[in-house]
Design a protein around this nucleic acid. Structure first.
Lengths: 120, 120
DNA sequence: TTACATGCAAATGGTTTGCAAACAT
DNA sequence: ATGTTTGCAAACCATTTGCATGTAA
């Protein structure tokens, strides 16, 4: 972060610390845990972090969510209760990715929908 | 649609006809092509169609988009110019989908990001 | 005939912007 | 000193709601 010429302010640190605690949090989730950071600053900090590639922004059907962009993982969403969980193993077959049409694949995101164990 | 006890009004037909023309349109796209349909009605019609499973709602990073839920396909998004295209071949390996944790997979969505041919 | 659908205007709610004060270097 | 960051209030914009009118079946 400092590398980019940005300052490591207490507010930014606080938001980052919160993001490190849990995956795919909403802005409200973050705000609750950073009551000392102004709403506008949370928005701006998240924008900054997303721009720097430190944070990933997702939309799983219900507004924006944010998470640290460290590891590669995907999401399972229960259509019944809305529970979101992660899985690490990527079921993509790279050999079957679209190719030959000139599109250069750089990243991907995958969401799996269904029923969680609790909802049967 | 009539099966569900809903009326086939001119407005709904118009929205459906527009959706049939092109994939992943924004609400504004649709509205431009259905100037005779009120804004609120477009919203309500899309909600209804999504609820009936006829239409799929997506978010590729820039607000909501809608498309007919007929075929299974995925999206490629150019990070440079924002162009969106589809590909039919699904690169998922069903054998590697998360299992054993009690989650029952019913559907999935995959988005591929990178550079389109034009943006090199 | 009658419950459902439409459309306007107004309300809502999440997100962004203007600007002055506080801060880091 | 100088440019960055913060926070409030206000502006903004997409979406939703209330309610009276219109309409498909």
């Amino acid at each position: 972060m400092r590398g980019g010429g940005y300052k490591a302010t207490p507010q930014r640190m606080s938001v980052l610390r919160t993001l490190a605690k849990e995956q795919h949090q909403t802005l409200e989730d973050i705000r609750t845990q950073c009551p000392e950071v102004g709403l506008v600053t949370v928005y701006r900090t998240l924008d900054l972090l997303v721009g720097l590639g430190i944070v990933r922004r997702l939309d799983l059907g219900d507004g924006a969510r944010y998470e640290l962009a460290e590891d590669h993982h995907h999401h399972m969403i229960c259509e019944q209760c809305g529970e979101i969980s992660e899985f690490e193993q990527c079921p993509l077959d790279p050999g079957r990715l679209p190719a030959g049409d000139g599109f250069e694949v750089r990243s991907h995101s995958l969401e799996v929908y269904g029923r969680c164990a609790a909802c049967g």
